[in-house]
Nucleic acid binder design. Structure first.
Length: 519
RNA sequence: GCCCCGCUAGCUCAAUUGGCAGAGCAGCUGACUCUUAAUCAGCGGGUUGAAGGUUCGAGUCCUUCGCGGGGCACCA
């Protein structure tokens, strides 16, 4: 005889209290649901549920063979648990759509089949409630795969109404402030969360297989270094010490190279106290890795292999969609010298100072920078070159394309190219104007490194300096860091690209928002 | 930090030139044991993001503020 599960801890004071519903016409949605909650308790059923073993993922249940009910063949008995996202009443039978993270299935609850108590509880179900159902899996007369409920277990009442209708949730702010609902009612949100994990796992597997050691380095640091960005400030009480949150992973990892860990990487959160946009979140995830006795070429091969593996993890083909366009990740990726691209699109030699200035004027790129004091200073030549590159060349880089041999002044942590001291051994991988990866032959000469740091510091406020002088890092270099290749990849941007997401908010489950206003 | 746009019922959206705040879904009551965006009959539901102003009259016009979106700036 089908029964409702009532082997729950009874709260006699609650269950013996007679429910005294206020007239529904005077209630709002939350009050109606609270009233139903009391009625459920009054039936002796715990509306908050408890452990529920043996349920199977809904997708797995749906894959079982299904015969039409009442044809003499008994289908398999299954248990499922999930959220009620659809409800249709047909007299003495309810048809529910029950959702879990693997899929949806119809559940049929008939008054005759579920028993008196079960039916009473079924009548108190709301959209958004969590239930467990055990019953035969088969098909209705209409051919819909269905679990025909023999027992119903209340797992949790939802006291708030859920979004309805097949329009789903469209208000961006509502989705972000109710991400848990977005995961349920916007299919792509959950899918992208899964794809992000797949990509991260692929990266780890790929690097682990090549002998890279994954490490964790401090988030709290005395000096923010390794990149140019404003840090978040914080404070350690017991030490009476001001600290910052890291803005890059670079310097601690290089210390590990000195320490003999030849292949090392970290995937970690970094924090930059800057503007928020569709491609910037104040906290984001970086991959940085270093390979002793390697160089730029080592990193290029590694990057290509890594990307091909990540694409394979989320796509059946090497060509993936990006908006109206596509990106083809079939190796080898295109390679282009920075200076050649500059000449091709800007139309002059990037080392010809006069010509670059003329071109900057032609493309309306400002020749000066505003200083903090409100004045202006003329841009350094290489900065101007870089601005022109960003303005004129980048839009053409649909990629994937490795751009290499950067102007040296732009790269304080990079080794100069042998025989061409104006160039640095650096590449960036571009895809549709996005910088996906950034790699160097690392500078391991402490004397040059210190001089570069000091030069960067001149004329810049402490906060805005490209790379703050980290004496301890210089000391580490002085003990001998092996020549090495290094690579950085912005994980969020990578996931955006591979999941065809045009805002970083689609690949970060909880992007930073201002707190909601009270009242 | 600057500019533009948006904010109306639980959700998705209407509301003409400034003139009675509406619909679908959800909710409530009722009918129906094969529905599936169920259907049918009926009923509720609002400080139009907040505060001020103009006006006989404001969802609509003005000011300030809040939150979000887009763009710019910042940002290796």
């Amino acid at each position: 005889m089908p029964v409702l599960h009532t082997d729950l801890p009874r709260d006699t004071t609650v269950s013996s209290a007679p429910s005294n519903p206020t007239p529904p016409e005077q209630q709002d949605h939350a009050a109606v649901r609270l009233d139903k909650l009391r009625q459920i308790e009054a039936l002796g059923v715990d509306p908050w549920g408890q452990r529920f073993d043996g349920h199977r993922p809904i997708a797995e249940v749906r894959a079982l063979p299904a015969e039409t009910f009442d044809t003499g063949t008994n289908g398999p008995t299954v248990r499922i648990a999930g959220r009620v996202v659809g409800r249709r009443r047909m007299g003495k039978v309810y048809f529910l759509d029950v959702w879990d993270q693997t899929g949806k299935v119809q559940v049929m609850l008939g008054a005759k089949q579920i028993g008196d108590l079960g039916w009473k509880v079924a009548e108190l179900l709301d959209l958004g409630d969590l239930i467990g159902v055990e019953g035969e899996f088969g098909k209705t007369k209409m051919g819909e795969p269905t679990v025909r409920g023999a027992t119903l277990t209340y797992l949790t009442k939802s006291l708030e109404p859920h979004p309805t209708g097949y329009y789903g949730m469209s208000d961006e702010e509502y989705r972000l402030r109710h991400r848990y609902l977005d995961l349920i009612y916007t299919e792509s949100t959950l899918r992208k969360a899964h794809q992000r994990v797949k990509i991260l796992r692929t990266i780890r597997n790929h690097l682990d297989a090549q002998g890279y050691l994954e490490v964790e380095t401090p988030v709290l640091q005395a000096v923010a270094s390794g990149a140019a960005a404003r840090p978040f400030q914080t404070h350690h009480n017991a030490l009476g010490l001001d600290l910052v949150l890291r803005i890059a992973l670079e310097l601690p990892l290089k210390r590990l190279l000195v320490g003999g860990i030849e292949k090392v990487y970290e995937i970690g959160r970094v924090f930059r106290n800057e503007g928020i946009s569709h491609k910037h979140n104040p906290e984001f995830t970086m991959l940085e890795l270093y390979c002793a006795y390697g160089d730029l070429g080592t990193m290029m091969d590694l990057t290509e292999g890594l990307l091909v593996a990540c694409v394979a993890a989320v796509s059946d083909t090497p060509t993936i969609p990006w908006g109206e366009q596509t990106v083809n990740f079939t190796p080898p990726f295109q390679r282009a010298r920075y200076g050649d691209l500059f000449r091709q699109y800007v139309g002059c030699d990037m080392q010809d100072r006069a010509a670059v200035k003329a071109k900057a004027a032609e493309f309306k790129v400002p020749l000066t920078l505003k200083t903090e004091g409100g004045g202006t200073v003329e841009k350094e030549h290489d900065v101007l070159v870089n601005d022109l590159f960003g303005e004129v060349v980048e839009p053409h880089l649909t990629g994937p394309v490795f751009v290499h041999d950067y102007p040296a002044e732009l790269c304080p942590l990079t080794k100069r190219k042998r025989g061409e001291p104006l160039l640095a051994e650096r590449f960036e991988l571009y895809v549709h104007g996005m910088e996906l990866a950034n790699a160097y032959t690392e500078l391991n000469d402490p004397i040059t490194q210190e001089a570069t740091f000091r030069k960067q510091l001149v004329g810049q406020s402490e906060e805005d300096s490209m790379a703050k002088l980290d004496e301890d890092f210089i000391r580490a270099l002085r003990h001998g860091m092996p020549p090495a290749g290094g690579l950085g990849i912005g994980i969020d941007r990578l996931v955006m690209l591979l999941t065809n997401s045009h805002t970083i908010r689609d690949v970060i489950l909880f992007p930073l928002l201002r707190p909601e206003a009270n009242t």
